[in-house]
Design a protein around this nucleic acid. Sequence first.
DNA 1: CGATGATAGTTATAATATAACACTTCAACT
DNA 2: AGTTGAAGTGTTATATTATAACTATCATCG
Lengths: 165, 165
Amino acid sequence: MSKTSQPKRKTERSLKHNHGACIETALSRAEQRCAEEGERFTGLRRQVLELVWAEHKPAKAYDLLKKLSDIRSGVAPTTVYRTLDFLQERGLVHKIESLNAYVGCSQPNAEHSGHFLICEACSEIKEIENSKISAWLESAAQDEEFKIKTETVELSGLCIRCQPS
Amino acid sequence: MSKTSQPKRKTERSLKHNHGACIETALSRAEQRCAEEGERFTGLRRQVLELVWAEHKPAKAYDLLKKLSDIRSGVAPTTVYRTLDFLQERGLVHKIESLNAYVGCSQPNAEHSGHFLICEACSEIKEIENSKISAWLESAAQDEEFKIKTETVELSGLCIRCQPS
DNA sequence: CGATGATAGTTATAATATAACACTTCAACT
DNA sequence: AGTTGAAGTGTTATATTATAACTATCATCG
Ligand SMILES: [Zn+2]
Ligand SMILES: [Zn+2]
Ligand SMILES: [Zn+2]
Ligand SMILES: [Zn+2]
């Protein structure tokens, strides 16, 4: 970790960014969020959230289960799913339906459905700003007089780093 | 089918429409599509597609398995999944990722990702016209220099019939 | 006919998710 | 401090969804 040169493209998130900061931010936001809602941010919940945030990639429930087993005892599928449900309900993680996997929510703010770009090559997932997309989708739904409650928007393809040049 | 008066709102699909025609259309389109591509539209494939088209609602693989077992022998999960895969690859059915279920494709034409309105109350699913939405999503992805290959767009909520008045 | 590849059958198992109930912890109240 | 009730977690069992690997059958073409 004492390397000094990092010559890289600005878009190369995995190289450029201080991911420790992502994790810190996510955890402290979670803490705050739970406090606001009178919920307890327990050790288990913190550990699961940390594991989900280990990368900007989808975390599978049973992989989380394995990793969690390394750091505490008495871990079963229920443990993981219950905790993920809790985190989801508070908007701290999202489920990626097309992958049966979970990612940390990177939109600090209000309740929202996540909208995702999913790279098929490197697996990185980016949650994109959603108000514009939500407005578009609502207008499309409105044409059918349909009232949207939750949006699943998962766009798979190639991120810039993985596109052939 | 000899009723003469149909006083209903144009949006009430389940009341207004001749679903037999939906099925006929889907089957003949499938036949044509397979012919074009040099694929065989076998009895099994036809039966599965018919079952998927039984309603404008999501069909679960294991429900299809049960129904299929009633009309032929030697049916196993593999049978159903393999056939659904075949139909999906030809754009004849779509998988609804958020429900782990399948619906018939109602967009005769080109290869496309489906975009869906899913009623949480009555389960009806409507595939909506997608070129506009696709264009929007592509522009959003473009902002991140992301190249979309497949779109999962599933909007859950209430259809007009199920909205409280 | 007999070779060939596609289709379908068969058996087993993997991967994902939930149910039901018991035990523990923690905060609020006396 | 002791009581209590709800929230959190542990435990066991099972349901649901999906795939792998191999075999048998069928359709087509030379
Ligand atoms: Zn990060
Ligand atoms: Zn990538
Ligand atoms: Zn119909
Ligand atoms: Zn409805």
